[in-house]
């Protein structure tokens, strides 16, 4: 704070000098403070455009959050099981479409899968495999957050560290419902909701379609 008073007076003096020399309010200030970068502080992301620095994404300035909906379809289970069911997963995703009913979706259940009853969150819900260890479900969330947040939510369920925005953007696209979703494939140890111990050798595949505009403001 001493420095503050000192430099304020310096600014004042310089400002006075400045105003004498020219009419514009132009001040010259000597930078005095400095610090060494912290060893553990987050590394800055370099070379970003203004849009990236300010965190402006195409969706965030288009509409309020309330009319946006995110869609997810996710399959999870022991790695071997999931690898074997991949084709059925794809087939299921292709049959999933908007239709009658409430919530308004229709799909065809792969024959080998068992239907589990839906919950408020899980609109379509299946399990399969020995001990019903494999699960697949389709979820719709109002709002739902952006791609990176969802990806990291899934990654944390599989016990993996957060991904960077670049990693999220570089995910492969997959035709899903009404547009392009991002296809995710993660291996790790799964810790289900409420479970105490994580189970190793698990795999999760899924499609994230974040914050889709529904209806649009009238």
């Amino acid at each position: 704070m001493f420095a503050r008073i000192y430099s304020l007076s310096l600014i004042l003096i310089l400002g006075l000098l400045g105003s004498v020399s020219c009419d514009r309010a132009e001040e010259y200030v000597e930078i005095k403070d400095s610090r060494t970068p912290g060893r553990f502080s987050p590394t800055p992301q370099l070379g970003l455009s203004f849009k990236d620095r300010a965190g402006i994404t195409s969706s965030s300035n288009s509409s309020p959050e309330s009319s946006k909906v995110s869609f997810f379809v996710k399959m999870i289970g022991p790695k071997a099981l999931i690898d074997g069911e991949k084709s059925r997963f794809d087939a299921f995703c292709k049959t999933l479409k908007v239709g009658k009913g409430n919530p308004p979706f229709e799909w065809t259940k792969p024959d080998e899968w068992n239907a589990a009853e839906g919950t408020a969150m899980r609109i379509a819900n299946f399990n399969f495999g020995p001990d019903k260890k494999g699960e697949c479900y389709f979820t719709v969330l109002p709002g739902g957050g952006q791609l990176l947040a969802n990806l990291n939510r899934w990654r944390s369920q599989m016990g993996l560290p957060d991904a960077t925005p670049e990693e999220a953007e570089s995910l492969p696209s997959r035709q899903f419902l009404f547009g392009d979703g991002k296809y995710v494939e993660i291996e790790g140890s799964f810790k289900g909701f409420g479970a105490s111990d994580a189970e190793d050798g698990y795999k999760m595949i899924g499609i994230i379609m974040p914050e889709l505009q529904i209806g649009g403001p009238k």
């Binding site: 704070m1 930078i31 005095k32 403070d33 400095s34 610090r35 970068p37």
Partner: peptide, 12 residues
């Protein structure tokens, strides 16, 4: 890697 940081403090 960051080498050195000059700071234009809130006072300035």
């Amino acid at each position: 890697k960051r080498e050195f940081i000059h700071v234009i403090g809130p006072d300035q």
